[in-house]
Design a protein around this nucleic acid. Structure first.
Length: 650
RNA sequence: GCCACCGUAGCUCAGUGGUAGAGCUCUCGAUUCGUAAUCGAGUGGUCCGCGGUUCGAAUCCGCGCGGUGGCUCCA
């Protein structure tokens, strides 16, 4: 072992220390403030415990609580503290895995009885004791036999141990009474965990495998600063406040009823308006871009899905077959469609195509049915009857790039209209795939060139493509920073093969086209659900179910209000009159709660002057008195431009 | 589908073995009002369903249906 080892710091300086020195000791040398703030260390790129001895030349970065990697360390340690507490309270509990996750951590336990909310409180109290005891996290590297000895009574850990390669380092971490098989790193001691909260318990299969036993998982969150914990809990509340299921009920947008069935949406008039506007928007845009609309049946012969290759893979997500006509043969069994592509493919195949005809872009906003597992259904976000804004583009290989470019342009236009930011990922060839590498290379390059031409940055999901082609996924970011699965653009070499699609090339020989599947909204159900939460029910004017509500002050103004309503309706504005025999205050409150963008008060003065007194949603008392014509002009302008904010507030 | 929790009026919810309740909504009457709840009266229930225990079940038990949070899968 060398006399000294060289440690290079982020500022480029270096110092020589004795082998076995820990990052903590180096931090102390640099300064007491740094040593106190230190959480962990990045040693030659890898995150280490502060206490772990360093034995070779390295680069060293001391991680303080400002570093995102430090949060992971904190949360991972919080998971161990949780397990420590559970083991103290329930010595018979078997431990599973307990990692840090986005915003928090969890730990899985095998226990004879699930945890109740009261149990969680007791566990949290015990955790605070563990924190007060300030146990050091001790790392230890051992061989397999020693490790097996330590986990004699923990079958789940033993199972994991068996998977270690012979040359793999097996490390154990101890904090007070608790020992765990763990790669680390951890906080220096349990006392560093200050701001945490256990959130809920849930069942989780051992190793995510539904054939294995179910463990009990406890979720929690942890932060370095009390303010961060508060902010996070507030964010959870905010998300709850925006829950589309609650807002959907309150604003009378949709319902899901037992008599119809789970996952099947009844769109009430106010919700149907939103869908109608979304359809109108996308259909206008795609017609400008050379798409053609088609309509296809909801039910088809089962044999179609056999030919398309969907049935063997997809059957468990499809509703069972129904018999139409006589007999039981495959020829007369029908299925509701879980997707539209086979039928669009048949439209393509219905005549001979020339290379000059391509690309052919077939679009259909169609409801398809998928028999999703009951436990996965969730409001509008996961349903069984889903309406896709679907399109299939049949094109030549040399057209892929331009088509992708145009789809990216379309999705950018659409998403920005709603004020969404987004990020993109390209999913490349997986292990199991059809087609040769050369073809994949061409396809992947075309996707990336199109993205580059639009100056978009994107991540690459290596091996994340479907077996039949690469794809681009778009993740939306909503008003409170949550991500949603948005558009997908999927290249498909498989379906043209299965249906023997062809076009005649300039060489007068048959060629095989490529299919691009693409949906911009994804599904209208999910997209509307996302919009409800994004806008917290306060839709921009063009999407608002009711755009203008006239409030006559007394019955004397009812006739004027009705006449205005008619004029506005004829100009394409969704206008109503609230002439209920209630106080103005009452009706204003109702309009605000229903998130009507404009309330227009009509009193004696307005009737006389031909004006309206406009109250803007959310703006309180402040009103503006303008001629009725001026207001109508502004409203129609705001609708036509699909503005995100009311006029005058931009 | 699996695990846990939950299911009472249109909505939000109280009611833990002894005659089903509140607020809002809705209907009717009065009120005619200038920017977030006017007053009064009334309607409204298979306490999710079926079975069991009990003299007696919204309440306890079993099964089913549905919802919620997860697991899994996906858009």
């Amino acid at each position: 072992m060398p006399e000294t080892i060289r440690v290079t710091l982020p500022d480029g300086s270096s110092r020589d220390v004795a082998p076995g020195t820990s990052a903590r000791e180096i931090a102390e040398e640099i300064g007491p403030r740094l040593a106190k703030a230190a959480v962990a260390a990045r040693v030659s790129g890898e995150v280490w415990d502060l206490n772990r001895p360093i034995n070779e030349d390295i680069t060293l970065e001391i991680l303080t609580d400002g570093d995102p990697a430090a949060l992971d360390v904190l949360r991972h340690s919080a998971a161990h503290v949780l397990a420590t507490a559970v083991r103290e309270l329930y010595p018979e509990a078997k431990i599973g895995f307990g990692p840090a996750i986005q915003d928090g951590f969890y730990y899985d336990f095998e226990v004879p009885r699930p945890f109740t909310p009261d149990d969680l409180e007791a566990i949290a109290a015990k955790m605070r004791e563990v924190v007060r005891a300030d146990y050091r996290f001790e790392r230890e590297e051992v061989d397999r036999e020693v490790a097996r000895g330590r986990f004699e009574d923990d079958p789940l850990k033993l199972e994991r141990l068996d998977e270690f390669a012979d040359d793999e380092t097996i490390s154990l971490y101890t904090d007070g009474p608790f020992i765990d098989l763990c790669r680390g790193p951890h906080l220096p001691s349990t006392g560093r965990l200050k701001h945490f909260k256990l959130l809920h318990a849930a069942g989780a299969y051992w190793r995510g495998d539904s054939r294995r036993q179910m463990l009990q998982r406890i979720y929690g969150t942890a932060w370095f600063k009390s303010a961060d914990l508060e902010a996070y809990l507030h964010r959870l509340e905010e998300a709850e406040r925006r829950d589309h299921r609650v807002i959907g009920k309150r604003l009378d947008l949709f319902s899901i009823q037992d008599e119809v069935g789970p996952g099947l949406i009844l769109w009430h008039p106010r919700g149907a308006v939103i869908q109608f506007e979304l359809r109108r928007f996308i259909e206008d845009e795609i017609l400008k871009r050379g798409y053609q609309l088609v309509y296809t049946p909801h039910v088809t012969r089962e044999a179609l899905f056999v030919r398309s290759g969907h049935l063997p893979i997809y059957a468990e997500h499809q509703f069972p077959p129904m018999a139409a006509g006589e007999g039981e043969s495959e020829e007369v069994r029908y299925r509701t469609k879980p997707m539209n592509c086979p039928m669009h493919t048949l439209i393509y195949a219905s005549q001979q195509r020339s290379y000059r005809d391509l690309p052919i872009r077939l679009a259909e906003i169609a409801t398809v049915y998928r028999n999703e597992l009951s436990g996965t259904l969730h409001g509008l976000l996961r349903v069984r009857g889903l309406t896709m804004d679907d399109a299939h583009i049949f094109c030549r290989e040399d057209q892929i790039e331009d088509e992708i470019y145009d789809i990216l342009d379309l999705s950018d236009l659409v998403l920005r209209t709603f004020g969404f930011e987004y990020r993109l990922d390209v999913a490349t060839r997986p292990e199991k795939k059809i087609g040769d590498d050369a073809t994949w290379e061409v396809a992947e390059q075309a996707l990336m060139r199109a993205l580059d031409r639009r100056n978009l940055t994107y991540g690459i999901d290596h091996g994340g493509g479907a077996f039949y082609g690469p794809k681009i996924d778009i993740q939306l970011k909503d008003a409170i920073g949550r991500e949603w699965q948005g558009a997908t653009i999927q290249l498909d070499y498989q379906l043209p093969e299965r249906f023997g699609l062809e076009y005649t090339g300039a060489d007068n020989r048959p060629h095989r086209p490529i299919i691009i599947h693409r949906a911009i909204y994804g599904t209208l159900e999910r997209f509307v659900g996302c919009l409800i939460e994004h806008f917290a029910g306060a839709f921009p004017l063009w999407l608002s179910p009711e755009q203008v509500r006239f409030l006559p002050i007394t019955e004397q103004q009812n006739a004027t209000a009705r006449a205005l309503r008619q004029r506005f309706r004829e100009a394409g504005v969704r206008a109503e009159v609230d002439e209920r025999s209630e106080t103005l205050n009452y009706r204003v409150r109702d309009g605000e709660l229903m998130k009507v963008p404009y309330m227009v008060v009509i009193g004696q003065r307005e009737v006389q002057d031909g004006t309206v007194a406009v109250r803007v949603r959310g703006a309180g008392k402040k009103q503006e008195i303008v001629p009725a014509d001026t207001f109508l002009e502004r409203v129609t302008g705001e609708i036509a431009s699909r503005a995100l904010v009311p006029y005058g507030s931009a």
